[in-house]
Computed example of a mutant assay.
Amino acid sequence: MEREEELLLKNLGWKGKGLIRSACDAETNSSSHQDSSDDELSKDRKKEGSLRFYKPKFSYIFCDMDGTLLNSKSQITPTTAEALREALSRGVKIVIATGKARPAVIDILKMVDLAGKDGIVSEVSPGVFLQGLLVYGRQGRQIFKSNLDPNISREACLYSLENKVPLIAFSEGRCLTLFDHPLVHSLHTVYHEPKAEIMPSTEHLLAAADIQKMLFLDTAERVASTLRPYWSEATKSRATVVQAVPDMLEIVPLGTSKGNGVKMLLDHLGVTAKEIMAIGDGENDIEMLELASLGIALSNGQEKTKAVADVIGISNDEDGVADAIYRYAF
């Protein structure tokens, strides 16, 4: 049919394309354009081992731990560890911003050889810990510390004893509790927090050290249905409740947050928000993601966190941090 059209047009002196050829070419061009678009999409993600050929877009990457850098088994995978090493080798500084205590973060990163002077975290590196209640600047010097109201701490201890809900009091590098419980053990064995010291009474616990935050451990259902409603009301205008993971509820000093901790550290370092990329998943990461030039929420994150993010990345069980580094940081 196309051949017949060509002969007819030739006899008529027509030098352009016929309708059939034009239609075929249009389809071919459309297909070619789609293939090209697919190629461009795949090229957005740099290949592992190739970052030495690219210029960093950001000076700093601020990264959460639980649900972000750590997968659902509370591990940093080899793929993610390698991406972090590549970024470091290109001069990008990676700063941890987490609800965890600093000793816990150091222990976790030691497992993948990323702790110490030339790694991501050490006793002499900057970082934001305990939901922004402890902030360390240059040479690991403490630049901010905020303690929980002792009256709130006392009320939390009494609630824990009366309702048999496990409670952990965080005091810099120490964890204190009032009774033994499997969930208390899991905070150490699974989440790598310092092993909890069992105090003989509320008075002993409160006298042992300054407390930055209290953390209740329960099922996700009980946290949502009982603990959060109760403590949101009980601490109104005196403290703030926040969640990093569904089965834990944290009580922190009023007016503090991980986001505020990140702001303080940036001011201390003389770094602008335009220079940073941030990656997180929980509601406690919202301010940090909003602050950053590029805020990335992993797909396993909470809906309210994903709603404020510039980009939604793949999940922590798919090496979401590694993918974000290879796709957006260079």
Rank of each mutant, 00 (worst) to 15 (best):
R228D: 05
D35I: 07
P166E: 00
F62C: 15
L109C: 04
S232C: 07
A307R: 13
A169N: 01
L289P: 01
D285S: 10
Y191T: 14
S171E: 03
F216I: 03
Y230F: 12
H192P: 00
V242C: 11
M65F: 01
K110G: 02
L51C: 13
W14K: 14
D39R: 15
L227C: 11
T202N: 08
S37Y: 12
T98R: 01
S125R: 08
G320C: 05
M264Q: 14
L265S: 10
P182S: 13
L249T: 10
M214K: 04
K274T: 06
L7H: 04
L134K: 09
V242T: 13
D317N: 12
A83W: 02
G67E: 05
K57Q: 14
A97Y: 01
D66W: 00
R222M: 09
L51M: 11
R238E: 07
N11R: 09
H204C: 07
Y191E: 14
S32D: 10
L19K: 12
D113M: 03
D281V: 01
F62G: 15
E27V: 09
A104L: 03
D317K: 03
I286R: 15
P56E: 06
G127P: 00
Q34V: 14
A239S: 06
N29C: 11
W14E: 14
S293I: 00
A278H: 07
A196N: 10
P126Y: 00
F216C: 05
A169E: 01
S72G: 13
H268L: 08
Y54V: 12
E6H: 06
N260V: 09
I279H: 00
V242L: 12
L9N: 08
E27N: 00
T77I: 09
G270F: 04
I76C: 04
G261R: 03
P253I: 04
A196D: 04
